[in-house]
Amino acid sequence: MNPREHQTIEEIPAAALLERVQKMRSEGWRLVHAACTRLVADQEVNYCFDRDGQSLDSPDSATLRGMHTLRVRLPMIDPELPSISSFYWPAFLYENEMHDLFGITVKGMAVDFHGHLYTTMVPTPYVTKEPDHGD
């Protein structure tokens, strides 16, 4: 009954991340969240941005709101990313989480917990343990 939010995804190479994030910041987007997803052979990192009342596809339509996602694909083994916390300071929490749960080395975080944000029994549980659907 109500229109669903418009959401766009843009896949970019890891090398272009900083440049792209800088552009997002200068355009006035806010960082909504950042998270990883384990795929079959590799993993992806999503950085979600939101600009009130506007979406990347339809910048002129003020009523439609939207979320824009920058997506970076990373290998399962020894993934590495630059930190975006120089553009978005609060990103350090998401990046520490990526490090602790997905084993991604994030370089240059504003605040580095050195793997002590989440202390899990199995290190980096989201990648080391294969999905096991049980029943």
Partner: peptide
């Protein structure tokens, strides 16, 4: 700060 005392792995539960 230090958090991580009650990490329950809810997101991991999607597998079960």
């Amino acid at each position: 700060p230090k958090i991580g005392y009650v990490h329950r792995g809810f997101e991991k539960l999607v597998e079960k």
